[in-house]
């Protein structure tokens, strides 16, 4: 089924694995295009390691001409942190969905953010567990129907959608880069991802980019409704933009501190 590389394909894309395996209307292909263009622009194909989580993210395992590892659900960031600590010259990309990032892998996200791990994390937020058939995710919007919230998400019972970039921005030390983009604006998304990769290359700190994305299969939406939900409802709850840049000082309580410790 391989097709020849086409002009619009990023160079780092692997032609042999195209057309890709995502559903029609899925946003993953757009996020991976933005990532591919960013890798191309920085010329880091030879030293970039791509790790993909379990879930639809997994379908990207042969997507690139990059050394790639399938990991476990929620564990992609630790694997890549392990690689980065052992081989700091490599550029590591941790790619996952909202479930992997904010539910099963949340402790790793929080800890990597606190440590300012030199890793670029890309989270595809499509408000559902898609690979497993459309259950409620940490990012499912209030009232949204899923297989496990068939009458709509009741925030009294299940809490409110997780704001991932806001969480990371609140706890990461100076030097972090945090942004939220959307597949509705691929130029901006590519720009964010590229900045996120640069942040790691320059050794400044963690880079965290959430990409708002679409899942018409599990949303059971047509094209028009897919875009409406993404652009109107999702981006209203999850505002797009940069939350932290490395130059910027984080919240006052996170100011740089001198070395402390009791003196025994």
């Amino acid at each position: 089924m391989a097709i020849a590389a086409q002009p619009q394909m990023p160079r780092v894309w692997r032609a042999e694995s195209k057309p890709h395996k995502f559903c029609p209307g899925c946003g993953h292909g757009i996020v991976l295009k933005a990532l591919g263009e960013a890798v191309d622009a920085l010329g880091i194909q030879e030293r970039t390691i791509f790790g993909c989580d379990i879930g639809c993210s997994l379908l990207s395992w042969d997507f690139f001409n990059l050394d790639t590892i399938q990991t476990h659900h929620g564990r992609t960031t630790p694997v890549l942190v392990g690689i980065k600590r052992a081989r700091p010259e490599l550029v590591v990309v941790s790619y996952m969905g909202d479930g992997g990032a904010y539910a099963i892998g949340a402790q790793h996200l929080v800890s990597s953010a606190s440590r300012n791990d030199l890793v670029t994390i890309i989270v595809v937020n499509n408000t559902v567990y898609a690979m497993t058939g459309g259950q409620m995710a940490p990012t499912t919007l209030p009232g949204q129907k899923t297989e496990t919230t068939p009458y709509g998400r009741d925030v009294e019972l299940t809490g409110r959608p997780m704001l991932g970039p806001e969480l990371v921005a609140a706890i990461a030390p100076p030097g972090a880069y945090v942004a939220r983009g959307s597949v509705a604006n691929v130029v901006q998304l590519k720009n964010y991802i590229q900045k996120g990769l640069e942040n790691q290359i320059q050794g400044r700190g963690i880079a965290f980019i959430e990409a708002l994305s679409s899942c018409p299969t599990n949303w059971r939406t047509n094209a028009a409704e897919t875009w409406r939900f993404l652009e109107k409802e999702m981006s209203a709850y999850f505002p797009v933009g940069e939350l932290r840049t490395p130059e910027e000082k984080p919240a006052a309580r996170l100011r740089e501190v001198p070395a402390h410790g009791p003196k025994p």
Binding site: R75, L80, V81, G82, K84, R85
Partner: peptide, 8 residues
């Protein structure tokens, strides 16, 4: 998992 990363 970081050990896994280290050996990879």
């Amino acid at each position: 998992f970081t050990t896994v990363g280290g050996v990879l």
